[in-house]
C-alpha cells in the first residue's frame, strides 16, 4: 500500500494505492491520520480510495479509527472514488451512513465549504 498526501484549498487529500491488508502498512495509515491531528495540520480530509485494489474489515477499521480521531479534533473525513467493491463493503457494514462519499475530487473539496446542514 502506498500513502500520498496533497493539500488543495485547505483540504488534505490522502491517496491510497494497492492493498489495504492487515499488517504494518495499515498501522502506517492509522499513524498518518493521527499525525494530521497531532501536527495540527489540515483536519479536513478527503480519503481517495480510487487506487485501492483490495480491502477488508481491517482496512475499514483503520478508516473508521481515522474518522474518529479527526472528529475528536473537530475535523472530518470524506471518501472519494470508492470502487464498486469497496462501496459494497461500506453498505454491508452500514458505514455508508457515517461517511459522505464522492466520485469527483472537486465536489469532495467543495463540500467542506458548504454550510452545515441543520
Amino acid at each position: 500500500m502506498k500513502i500520498q498526501e496533497q493539500v488543495k484549498d485547505g483540504v488534505t487529500i490522502v491517496r491510497l494505492t494497492g492493498k489495504l491488508i492487515s499488517g504494518p502498512e495499515l498501522m502506517e495509515l492509522k499513524t498518518a491520520f493521527q499525525n494530521l491531528v497531532n501536527q495540527d495540520r489540515h483536519k479536513k480530509v478527503v480519503l481517495d480510495l480510487g487506487g485501492v485494489t483490495w480491502m477488508d474489515s481491517s482496512g475499514l477499521g483503520v478508516i473508521v479509527s481515522g474518522h474518529t480521531t479527526l472528529r475528536r479534533a473537530e475535523g472530518m473525513m470524506k471518501i472519494l472514488n470508492a470502487t464498486k467493491k469497496i462501496h459494497e463493503l461500506f453498505i454491508i457494514t452500514k458505514l455508508i451512513t457515517v461517511f459522505e462519499t464522492f466520485a469527483s475530487e472537486s465536489e469532495a473539496i467543495a463540500s467542506f465549504k458548504e454550510p452545515e446542514k441543520a
Binding site: 474489515s57 475499514l60 477499521g61 474518522h67 474518529t68 463493503l89 454491508i92 452500514k94 458505514l95
Partner: peptide, 15 residues
C-alpha cells in the same frame, strides 16, 4: 457502528 473492529464475519456472511 464506530468500532474499529468486529465486522469480519458480517462481511464474510454478506459476500
Amino acid at each position: 457502528l464506530y468500532s474499529d473492529r468486529g465486522r469480519g464475519i458480517l462481511i464474510a456472511r454478506n459476500l
